[in-house]
């Protein structure tokens, strides 16, 4: 009996020591982690507010937030639960807060953060939607957390040539929900498909199978997130 107590005691002491070390490292790294996450978010917000076709900002340069306080001033909607909207059909979530900026033409530009489940966990996407006429035009995206996706496969989701495929999706593309080409029965890809990428986008098809071979789940998570964001905007910003 005494042997068991001794073993339990030794293990407890080791675990307590480990817990103290981990807690100390957590305290030390808390601020740098928050800083890195904020920097990643601010960089992503600036990127999605840039027109991918012209390279020009949709809003005035001085409206781009540089600090947490400036970012907070742009909050449009927030929720204490951390989730603003979830769509069971698209299996995506819109995270709190959502931001709104004023475009140079006076129309609102919504910047939303959302996620869906990829291969190994959450794939977090930031996207900007510009209000155009009766609908919303998706301008650009940045994937800010894909840390659970496989390196060399799903983790390539934020590479410029990959994310470009998710840019500039018009209103019409979202009407029946955006799909990756494999889910839209566009596989194998026909000859000359590269010249038709924008046409496919207008039909709600994002072509990724040629540049993300062997990784359909991660881009599918991004389109699920975009569909959820669009439904949220239809409901809240129409």
């Amino acid at each position: 009996m005494g042997k068991y107590f001794k073993t339990a005691l030794i293990l407890t002491v080791i675990m307590v020591a480990i817990a103290v070390i981990l807690a100390s490292v957590y305290v030390v790294t808390k601020q740098p982690i928050a800083k890195s996450d904020l920097e990643a978010k601010l960089t992503a917000i600036k990127a999605v507010l840039t027109d991918p076709n012209t390279g020009k900002l949709l809003i005035n340069e001085n409206e781009i937030p540089q600090t947490m306080a400036q970012l907070k001033a742009k909050i449009w909607k927030s929720s204490s639960s951390g989730i603003l909207f979830s769509d069971e059909r698209a299996k995506g979530y819109v995270l709190s807060p959502a931001y709104v900026f004023k475009a140079k033409n006076g129309e609102p530009v919504y910047v939303l953060v959302g996620y869906a489940i990829g291969f190994g966990g959450k794939v977090v996407t930031v996207a900007a939607f510009e209000k155009r006429g009766n609908g919303f035009y998706e301008n650009a995206i940045r994937v800010i957390d894909y840390s659970n996706e496989t390196p060399g496969l799903g983790a390539r989701i934020n590479e410029p040539k990959v994310r470009k495929r998710f840019y500039s999706i018009p209103n019409s593309g979202f009407e029946n929900g955006v799909k990756v080409n494999k889910d839209a029965n566009l596989y194998p890809l026909p000859k000359g498909y590269k010249e038709k990428l924008n046409y496919y986008k207008s039909k709600g098809i994002v072509v990724t199978s040629d540049i993300m071979t062997g990784a359909t789940i991660t881009p599918r998570a991004v389109v699920s997130t975009l569909n959820t964001m669009y439904t949220f905007l239809e409901k809240e910003a129409r």
């Binding site: 070390i21 981990l22 490292v25 957590y26 790294t29 601020q31 740098p32 982690i33 800083k35 890195s36 996450d37 920097e39 990643a40 190994g120 966990g121 957390d145 894909y146 840390s147 659970n148 996706e149 496989t150 390196p151 983790a155 934020n158």
Partner: peptide
């Protein structure tokens, strides 16, 4: 866990690239 926290705080891009392998 310590390495993961340090990489998240100080080498964000590498931490994101290496993903779940950390």
């Amino acid at each position: 866990t310590i390495v993961n926290l340090l990489m998240h705080g100080y080498t964000y891009q590498l931490w994101t690239n290496l993903g779940l392998y950390i």
